[in-house]
């Protein structure tokens, strides 16, 4: 399991036009060692802000984030090799016209030779059962196929951990189940944000984010219960 550690992490941005700063997250201190961690919370609570810290997509204003002992701030490139990051919309993830080309792009770093790279890409696509869709334009794939393709491109480099920001939000029920099954089978450490509480329950540990703070941290059933109660109290 890959250990992810946050130590007194705060994220702030400049508030419009003034010297004052707006706090989006923190202070958050936590140590994630579980195989599956889910993150839930209201819109705008700070889930994405938290997840983006985990592979250095954004950096903490203060505090420290480490993955497997490596500091995200000073050792970003190494952390990104360890941690794959998945966006809600696979179209922002896939930067090449077809799935195969996108997987090959992922592999450019590890496979300098084109023929071995092509073989490796083929193997990855077959492993995830996407061989028949590899050469189709990503715009012509269904939402579910596209999300699986994006996941495949992420997994091509064999990361140790995956951070997924609402991976099933754009999917229908069948594709959500398909994606969940694919995720369950992965050996990687997985941290994911979701509004699908059923999915959140499949984790070993759940964080509830509220106004940029970890409001609940513990077993998924308790977290979901807490989150529901809070939503009812507020609404």
């Amino acid at each position: 399991m890959t250990t992810i550690e946050l130590d007194e992490v705060i994220v702030e941005v400049a508030a419009d036009g003034g010297p004052s700063r707006r706090r989006l997250l923190g202070p958050v201190s936590t140590r994630l060692t579980e195989h599956r961690v889910s993150v839930i919370g209201a819109n705008g609570s700070g889930k994405s802000t938290l997840l983006r810290l985990l592979n250095g997509l954004s950096l903490a204003t203060s505090g420290r984030v480490t993955v497997a002992g490596r500091d995200v701030k000073t050792d970003g490139a190494a952390v990104r090799r360890l941690v794959g990051f998945g966006f809600t919309d696979p179209l922002s993830q896939l930067v090449m016209p077809t799935g195969r080309e996108d997987v090959e792009l992922s592999l450019r770093r590890s496979h300098r030779d084109r023929d071995t790279r092509r073989k490796a890409a083929e193997a990855v696509l077959l492993r995830f059962g996407l061989g028949h869709l590899a050469d189709q334009s990503i715009y012509e794939l269904s939402g579910g196929e596209r999300q699986l393709m994006a996941l495949t491109a992420l997994l091509a480099t064999d990361p140790e951990a995956l951070v997924l920001d609402e991976p099933s939000t754009l999917l229908d029920l069948r594709n959500t189940m398909l994606l969940r099954r694919a995720l369950t089978a992965l050996p990687q450490t997985l941290v994911f944000a979701t509004h699908d509480l059923e999915h959140a329950l499949e984790a070993e540990r759940t964080l509830v984010i509220e106004d940029g703070l970890v409001a609940f941290d513990g077993d998924p059933a308790g977290a979901v219960q807490y989150y529901r109660a809070r939503a009812e109290a507020l609404g």
Binding site: N55, L57, G76, A77, R80, R81, G84, F85, F87, D89, S92, Q93, L94, V95, L105, S106, R109, A153, L154
Partner: peptide, 16 residues
């Protein structure tokens, strides 16, 4: 910005 994010997330802009 999204494309930049996607590239950064995949470490494609990182020095090798």
């Amino acid at each position: 910005r999204r494309t930049g994010d996607a590239l950064a997330a995949r470490g494609l802009g990182d020095p090798r």
